[in-house]
Design a protein around this nucleic acid. Sequence first.
DNA 1: CGAACCATAGAACGCCGTTCGATAGAGTGC
DNA 2: GCACTCTATCGAACGGCGTTCTATGGTTCG
Lengths: 240, 240
Amino acid sequence: MSERTDAPARPARGRRRMAHSLEAVLAEAIALLDEAGESALTFRALAARLGGGAASIYWYVSNRDELIDRATDEVMGRLLDDTADLTDGPDPVANLRDLSLALFEEMRRRPWFGSYMLRNTGQQPNSMLMFDRIGQQLMRLDLTPKQQFHAASSLVSYIVGVAMDMAQPPPKEFLDSGMQPAEFLASYADRWRALDPVDHPFAHHVADEFAVHDDEDVFRSGLDLLLAGVQVQARGHGRD
Amino acid sequence: MSERTDAPARPARGRRRMAHSLEAVLAEAIALLDEAGESALTFRALAARLGGGAASIYWYVSNRDELIDRATDEVMGRLLDDTADLTDGPDPVANLRDLSLALFEEMRRRPWFGSYMLRNTGQQPNSMLMFDRIGQQLMRLDLTPKQQFHAASSLVSYIVGVAMDMAQPPPKEFLDSGMQPAEFLASYADRWRALDPVDHPFAHHVADEFAVHDDEDVFRSGLDLLLAGVQVQARGHGRD
DNA sequence: CGAACCATAGAACGCCGTTCGATAGAGTGC
DNA sequence: GCACTCTATCGAACGGCGTTCTATGGTTCG
């Protein structure tokens, strides 16, 4: 009857015993994912955080997969909001670059995010919106629809590929040896240098670069290759 | 543990002679992965195929992760053998294209393969060899080592990204409705057409392309964008 | 013939996702 | 006030998983 005044705009509807809510479930799920990665997101751990039983979560979500889908889409939704102005620029290619970099930033913040970004966009409306936002910039270029579709798909594939790379948890030898990330990278490069030079000429050739590389540089670099290709295609404006 | 110490610990691909059972374990593991995907690869299922107990497998492999790593690397080893001649051509960029397409083909054959390709190349000597083989072609172009390293990484990321896409199991609605893949794709395109045209202009714009697209075309298309970017960079021959 | 070692496998542990049924509380009609 | 329904919660249990421990058969060799 009388409303609790603690609830702001969206009252969490009448508080029951252990009032959950879809919002709360997703918020804690995301927190769990952020703190300890995908394997840490279990129904029991989540329930403990929410202060209830594991079975209760099934009221809001029918599945662990659906839980992850919704969490991912929630994050994507926020990202859409935060980056709404990135497509205002006059140059569509520059806009694509900014948009992709924003995605990269989010993936760096949340290594789990990229891995689930593309699965089943049918279940992830916001991922679909992001895909469309990318495509809309490509529509502004002088390309055939097929070229535009291919370019959008390739861009997303590239981004997800990098995401997968970054989602790789650091090997435990790193966690054990309290090294700094830069130190570890350097010592990892030494392993490249220890490989047979006959079988691995390239590893030796670029070991120095590898030792000091920054993930964002690598990402930006590949992104620019892809976008350069798009621009070549747009100027050639023709066949596929 | 399971290795004799007399043989000069071969790096990776040398035929193992006495490790009769490790080969069997990996062969059955790969068969299981091929037939029913990653989730089907359980120690119990694998043991059943081998006609023994689950615990026995731990003699050959200390981990499920290691099992998957070894299976992946085994497949990569065969692929290295099968594609050894793809880098003989005079044009390094054409060679990269052929190599990438061979990887794509393998990923199409084995959707699970791409997902595990890049993890921990420290544990996957053959993946490292493949990475080097890609890099060797890039060494032949007029690029700085940094550019070469970035290009190799980006190429692999792109390939893995597409792999992730293809590793997505088809939604169960597809399996239920005995549709042909082409039919399903068309009906999926209808769902794009049913989206709000204001929010999803691009989806509507390319729905027709999406309805008839072929994964390999899309892959090849993005690959060519990337390689075109590399070529632009090589001709500009300079700064990053 | 017995010892040493390789290889196997049954049983159990703890964790997981998921299901089922019981039940407490809020809303509703009388 | 009361009974009834509907919503949301949760304890308990099921089956399956990776993994470990321990016991034990089979070979090889002195």
